[in-house]
């Protein structure tokens, strides 16, 4: 659904010549955690679901995807978490 909304916004931007610099994928569950031996089922299932949509995102936006940012172990509140997020965004490679 978020993917559909994004595609819709992109079309609207294009119509009015507003440049789009890229896309950022948020809350990607890290593979090593999702596939570790004792990962709870919900996490593994959500990981599988995400991988399906990630493929779609890469297909739709290709090299316009500037970063894929991981899901952290808690929500992003406070400077420490924001700094970790920034690092993932600027220095991370696509997952």
């Amino acid at each position: 659904m978020i993917l559909l909304d994004t595609e819709k916004a992109a079309k609207l931007f294009a119509k009015y010549d507003v440049p789009i610099s890229g896309y950022i994928v948020n809350r990607v569950i890290p593979k090593e955690i999702a596939l570790s031996e004792h990962a709870p089922n919900y996490l593994r299932n959500r990981y599988d679901m995400q991988q399906k949509y990630l493929a779609k995102i890469r297909e739709a936006f290709g090299n316009e995807v500037q970063a894929e940012v991981p899901e952290m172990e808690r929500d992003i509140a406070g400077l420490d978490m924001i700094a970790r997020m920034a690092e993932a965004m600027y220095e991370g490679e696509t997952l």
């Binding site: 890290p30 570790s36 004792h38 990962a39 172990e73």
Partner: peptide
């Protein structure tokens, strides 16, 4: 309860 004690720190 569904999260096992050995599960990742992350969880």
């Amino acid at each position: 309860e569904s999260v096992s004690a050995e599960a990742d720190e992350f969880v």
